[in-house]
């Protein structure tokens, strides 16, 4: 009984200490993230005429967002681009993660991961700009292909359109896809694979029936961590997207900084978030069976 009491007292002080420590970062996130996110939602129900802000609640911005074709087009395009980027990034990232996890000797794994993450940490703006240089009419890609005699005239479908946005973003988010998949693959007990093969499964079947399902938590994490932030990318569509490659973030920026219509920008931001949120939830529901026990 005595022991129970000490335990309880100990438990309480554990809780108190935990709260004490987490209080500051939590307060920071609450004040500078939760409150502003709430404010954005509230703003989306207000209206603004140049500098005067009308605080009566109205659905006017949302009605405009749904009736004005441009907004709808940008929202749908952003969602499709994010989806394409996610698909491209995760599909190309998986073999890399698999290679590093299964075929690179343990002592060299962290070097490979380090090599993969370096480009991600170098100036984002300049990296995106350089894709423009690579994909351009007189760019590196076209000049090389022309030089090799593979094509007769420069390819034009690779810059200033959605393709360029997808390639550039797939490059930008590569480590975000590789790392979670790599971590999931590393956790797989290798004896399970041996067991699979000892029981007569082929390499391919073992991969699909053992490795892939066990790697799914990493794949799901990769999908979410690429899909959600991509929808808000501003720089890439602006630099390599051309007029038909612009995305919703460009419109949000225009509403806030150029048209002085923060409430409309806020409504578009809320809509974009609601859309990715909905897609992410559906995706999670569909993949839930792979995540059981995680």
């Amino acid at each position: 009984m005595n022991e129970g009491r000490t335990k309880r007292r100990h438990g309480r002080s554990e809780t108190a200490q935990g709260y004490l420590l987490v209080a500051t970062p939590f307060a920071y996130a609450l004040l500078l993230l939760a409150v502003p996110l709430g404010a954005i939602v509230m703003f989306s129900f207000w209206t603004q005429d140049y500098l005067t802000l009308d605080k009566t609640l109205t659905l006017k911005n949302y009605r405009e967002a749904f009736s004005e074709p441009l907004y709808g087009e940008l929202l749908i395009r952003s969602l499709l681009v994010s989806g394409a980027v996610t698909l491209a990034t995760v599909l190309t990232a998986f073999p890399i993660a698999y290679f590093v996890s299964f075929y690179v000797p343990p002592e060299r794994k962290s070097m490979w991961i380090f090599l993969i993450t370096i480009p991600f940490w170098t100036s984002y703006l300049i990296r995106v700009f350089l894709w423009k240089v690579i994909l351009g009419y007189n760019g590196v890609f076209n000049t090389t292909l022309l030089g090799l005699g593979i094509i007769d005239e420069p390819l034009t479908f690779i810059l200033y359109n959605v393709n360029a946005v997808v390639i550039t973003l797939a490059h930008a988010y590569a480590p975000f896809a590789i790392l979670p998949i790599f971590v999931a693959l590393e956790k797989i007990d290798r004896t399970l694979l041996e067991a699979g093969r000892d029981l007569g499964e082929s390499y391919v079947m073992t991969f699909f029936r053992v490795t892939l399902p066990l790697a799914m938590p990493g794949v799901v994490a990769a999908v979410l961590i690429v899909f959600i932030p991509t929808i808000g990318d501003y720089v890439t569509p602006r630099l390599v997207g051309g007029p038909d490659g612009l995305m919703i973030a460009n419109m949000i920026q225009t509403q806030f900084l150029k048209l002085n219509n923060a409430p409309m920008g806020a409504a578009l931001a809320v809509l974009a978030m609601a859309m990715v949120g909905a897609v992410a939830l559906v995706f999670l529901a569909l993949t839930r069976r792979f995540l059981r026990g995680q």
């Binding site: 993230l33 502003p36 996110l37 404010a39 703003f43 808000g232 973030a249 920026q253 923060a262 931001a269």
Partner: peptide, 15 residues
Amino acid sequence: LVLPEIIVAVSLLVV
């Protein structure tokens, strides 16, 4: 970590 940066930016700006 997963929130688009533009959302963080505009919400802070508004406040």
